[in-house]
Simulated scan of single mutants.
Amino acid sequence: MKTEIRIINYVDDILLLHQNKEYLKKMTQRVMDTLKYFRFAMNTEMSETEPNQIIIFLGWEWNLANATVRTKPKKRLLLLRDLYYMRRWIKTETEIAIKQTAKLIRKLNYLRLKSQEATLLLNIVDHQKAKAARLRGQNTTMTMNKTAIPDINWWIAKFRANIPAQLIQISPQMTMTTDAAPSRWGSTLDKELEMIAMAHGTW
């Protein structure tokens, strides 16, 4: 079946996109009929078959009108709760189950869609968890070092703000490059691969 709609799928989750609401509604029914023809079972209670500009897909809230995505309210609150607990346990040097730490890391990893820094800000927690698992085993507990608190605070701030991420990346019009040495510094400003300004000096 060839159509003009855009189809995004992940395993058994399918998202259909088209600018024309009536056409999308018609093609959604055709897709459903095709799936039924090939004996695929569809969970109608978990599916949205009416065209909508704000949808839940793969655990995210997608706003197709302004091309943004953000964490679902319930998921956001649950992750905030887990992070508050983790921060308290770190501050009080409470023993934490290694598997529980691994579970939190898995939950936070899915935020890579929203923030490019997400993976970097899991490194300290993940490193400590991996080290404890290697020394003690997966089914034991660990005490998280307080160096992880700034990263936990970053995550909490991100969830509290819950700023939608843009799905369409806007290319920068200008790029500033800086460099520094013990005695000198320099900076250039480029526009469309052409240098339009330069500054340099000594400390």
Rank of each mutant, 00 (worst) to 15 (best):
I98V: 07
R30K: 14
G137L: 08
E4R: 13
N66Q: 03
W154P: 01
F159S: 05
T94S: 13
L108H: 01
I156Y: 01
M195G: 10
V11I: 14
P73F: 11
I152C: 01
G137P: 02
M42H: 10
D151E: 03
R81A: 10
Y37N: 14
W60R: 08
K107D: 08
F57R: 03
E22I: 09
W154N: 01
W62G: 02
E117N: 06
I124F: 03
A97R: 07
N52K: 15
I124A: 14
K158R: 14
N145I: 03
E95R: 11
Q169D: 07
T178D: 10
L77K: 12
L80C: 06
R30N: 14
I170P: 02
L16G: 11
R30T: 02
W155I: 01
A165R: 02
L64V: 05
F40R: 02
T68S: 14
R106L: 05
Y23G: 01
E95A: 14
L17I: 15
M176Y: 05
P51F: 04
W155L: 02
R81D: 09
K2Y: 01
I90F: 06
W203G: 00
I105C: 04
G201A: 09
I149A: 02
H127F: 11
T147C: 03
E45H: 10
E45V: 04
Q173Y: 11
K107Y: 04
W62I: 03
A41E: 15
R87N: 06
I152L: 02
K36L: 15
R39H: 14
W185R: 11
W185Y: 15
L64Q: 04
Y10L: 08
I168R: 10
T71C: 06
N9L: 12
E192L: 08
K131W: 13
I168V: 13
T202A: 12
Q128V: 00
R112D: 08
K191S: 05
D13K: 08
A65G: 03
A65L: 07
L167P: 02
I7S: 10
L17M: 08
Q166R: 10
N153T: 05
I54G: 02
D33G: 08
E48H: 06
S47T: 05
Q169W: 10
L80M: 13
T94G: 02
A133D: 05
P73Q: 11
K2W: 03
L79A: 07
R106N: 10
M32A: 13
D126T: 09
A118K: 05
W89P: 01
Y85S: 04
A118N: 07
K99T: 12
K21G: 03
T34C: 11
T202V: 14
L83G: 01
L193G: 12
L78P: 00
